[in-house]
């Protein structure tokens, strides 16, 4: 059984490498039972999407300041 701390590590690593079958299963099992880690996983994906937009120049034009 993975701890929340281990799950956050996998939530990060799955953005950088394919997880093994075993990792994927235990990760998914934990998320089904843990709302906090489930939200954490969503936040990781949100951050990835936002930063990708930033790096593609797809952000709203900034006013002069």
């Amino acid at each position: 059984m993975l701890s929340c701390k281990q799950v956050t590590r996998l939530a990060s690593e799955k953005l950088d490498r394919p997880l093994s079958l075993r990792e994927r299963l235990s990760f998914r099992m934990h998320l089904m039972m843990c709302a906090a880690c489930s939200r954490f996983d969503g936040q990781m994906q949100f951050m990835r999407t936002a930063i990708s937009r930033l790096s593609r120049g797809e952000t709203p034009d900034r006013e002069d300041r």
Partner: peptide
Amino acid sequence: RSEVWLAPDQAAENSAFW
């Protein structure tokens, strides 16, 4: 512990978020 992040989609449309 993670709380719900309110409307990430809306955040992204708000230039202050960036």
